[in-house]
Design a protein around this nucleic acid. Sequence first.
DNA 1: CCACGGTATCGACAGGGTGTCGAGTGGGTC
DNA 2: GACCCACTCGACACCCTGTCGATACCGTGG
Lengths: 212, 212
Amino acid sequence: MGPATSKRGRRSPRPSGDDREGAILATAERLLGERSMRDISIDDLARGAGISRPTFYFYFPSKDAVLLALLDGVVQEADAALAAVSADILAADPSRYWRDCIATFHRTFGAHAAVTLACAEVRLTNTEVLELWSRVMDSWNQAVAAAIEGERVRGAAPPGLPARDLAIALNSMNERVLYSSFAHDVPTVAAEDVVDVLHTVWLNAIYQTTDP
Amino acid sequence: MGPATSKRGRRSPRPSGDDREGAILATAERLLGERSMRDISIDDLARGAGISRPTFYFYFPSKDAVLLALLDGVVQEADAALAAVSADILAADPSRYWRDCIATFHRTFGAHAAVTLACAEVRLTNTEVLELWSRVMDSWNQAVAAAIEGERVRGAAPPGLPARDLAIALNSMNERVLYSSFAHDVPTVAAEDVVDVLHTVWLNAIYQTTDP
DNA sequence: CCACGGTATCGACAGGGTGTCGAGTGGGTC
DNA sequence: GACCCACTCGACACCCTGTCGATACCGTGG
């Protein structure tokens, strides 16, 4: 609904105590590297930022709100990195274009694996995190669907599944596989192969042949 | 490690009060249809089964243990349904074989969507649920990998990605897409198309052409 | 220099959920 | 009739969350 950015902080970012907010955020990301969201209490975050528990509520309305702010940052980072992948190379070297997109995704979220994993957990019970995540996924889906349609129009890719459905399926695969990889789940693809595997499935699904 | 079945109940299933256990299970599956695991207290389960909260602990060590028992049942059901899909038709009609597998998966877990969704939530924080889920996924992965290798050996499918990696990627896609479908997530494939979409991507990924 | 208002902070409380302990109760068995 | 054992629950201790009211700090204008 809203345009884009902040509304989530609180009221005015004028005076000091702004570092407190940063300290809470930093503490949260640090602790998420050690243990799960469930095992981090608001008291942990407050102590980590050098304040008391009630004071925490001055900066954030809840524990989930901290994660939401963290996710917001990662998403912005991912959007910026994705924008740096020039769409121009799609026509010249489609394979490389898709690979760059997947690798960028992998790199950005991998750099904040703890936050990513925590969000995947919290979105199941928190509406705001779910909405932000869904909106982001939807924008990927639209972008991928548009790119697939472009490839079909110029004759590089054959017609087939509705582009949107295909985009959703492929992005869902990436989400789940990358999650498993970040979480070091037991039955998963080797970390160094994960981008290659996803890339290959994408090419086969979009171009329906190994070598486009 | 263990062979297969029960160890999870409690001690002896001899006397009555066994219906209590059933009542707790039934109450849990019913309530999961209405609200999330987080919003169901042990007291809710106990009241629903006509017992007090402390008595609940006589039957199950925790709320998660109830879900684990529920998942156990669904998994057994899925295994039975999958076993009914004859592997013989793989050579005769590969497309139909893969479609039957995906559709069976979809039907069985869809019939217990509430339990499936709850498990996806709880496995992120509960080791036992995660282990059971992982073991099940791993057995699918192995079966799919073996089938792919069979298709390659008989020349029906070209060589390519390691069969195991491909199997993991495809099963992961199914897991995520079916989850979104069951959860009625916003950016998802239309419920009636979901099996078709997954099926098509599987065929393209395994046979690398629309028409095997 | 001193009210004054807003920022920032915390002690203390209430509420709700979990898990445990010890004291029952009732039906089968010797 | 004494005894065991499955079964039941009241009451407690604990932890975490969220809120309220009191307070401290600080810049500004009278």
